[in-house]
Computed example of a mutant assay.
Amino acid sequence: MKWTSALAIYLLIWAFSTFFVLPFHGRRAEDDAVPLIDGQEPGAPARFHPLRILIQITIVATIAFALFYVAYINGWTNPDVLSGRA
């Protein structure tokens, strides 16, 4: 696998990892009894930590890519194997 292909696959997995990580950051302002600012959505996060979220997304994506790469090296992602023709 070329390094550019690996990078593209990693970035794709990284983007999809956001859908796994973000639901775990659901502390609402209502839950923390933080006073709302005019115009603030009550369901919005009370405290937003983007660096922490980016680090968690990167960790999840790196683990998922490592699993994919092991499967690629062992030939488990071969289309013939996946379709049952091999």
Score class of each variant (00 low, 15 high):
residue 52 R to L: 04
residue 25 H to M: 02
residue 62 T to F: 01
residue 62 T to I: 05
residue 25 H to G: 01
residue 30 E to K: 13
residue 15 A to G: 07
residue 52 R to A: 04
residue 13 I to Y: 05
residue 18 T to D: 10
residue 37 I to P: 00
residue 54 L to M: 09
residue 28 R to P: 01
residue 55 I to Q: 12
residue 21 V to A: 07
residue 11 L to K: 09
residue 14 W to S: 10
residue 58 T to A: 10
residue 15 A to S: 09
residue 44 A to N: 04
residue 16 F to P: 02
residue 56 Q to I: 08
residue 31 D to P: 02
residue 53 I to T: 05
residue 63 I to M: 05
residue 28 R to Q: 06
residue 48 F to M: 13
residue 17 S to M: 12
residue 34 V to T: 07
residue 45 P to D: 11
residue 41 E to Y: 11
residue 26 G to N: 14
residue 32 D to I: 08
residue 17 S to P: 05
residue 29 A to G: 02
residue 16 F to T: 13
residue 61 A to D: 04
residue 37 I to Q: 06
residue 24 F to R: 04
residue 56 Q to E: 13
residue 25 H to D: 09
residue 43 G to V: 00
residue 44 A to M: 04
residue 51 L to Y: 02
residue 41 E to S: 15
residue 37 I to L: 09
residue 40 Q to T: 12
residue 40 Q to Y: 11
residue 64 A to G: 04
residue 35 P to N: 11
residue 21 V to T: 07
residue 12 L to R: 11
residue 11 L to H: 15
residue 21 V to E: 05
residue 43 G to L: 06
residue 60 V to P: 07
residue 27 R to L: 12
residue 30 E to H: 09
residue 20 F to K: 06
residue 27 R to F: 13
residue 25 H to L: 06
residue 38 D to R: 08
residue 33 A to N: 11
residue 30 E to C: 04
residue 14 W to Q: 06
residue 61 A to M: 02
residue 29 A to H: 02
residue 64 A to M: 05
residue 28 R to H: 02
residue 25 H to W: 08
residue 41 E to H: 15
residue 32 D to N: 03
residue 49 H to G: 00
residue 55 I to A: 15
residue 62 T to L: 03
residue 32 D to V: 12
residue 12 L to V: 07
residue 43 G to C: 01
residue 31 D to I: 10
residue 59 I to Y: 08
residue 42 P to C: 10
residue 11 L to I: 12
residue 24 F to Y: 06
residue 55 I to S: 14
residue 58 T to S: 14
residue 39 G to Q: 11
residue 13 I to C: 10
residue 27 R to T: 15
residue 22 L to S: 05
residue 22 L to M: 14
residue 41 E to M: 04
residue 44 A to P: 00
residue 43 G to T: 06
residue 59 I to P: 03
residue 46 A to T: 08
residue 9 I to E: 11
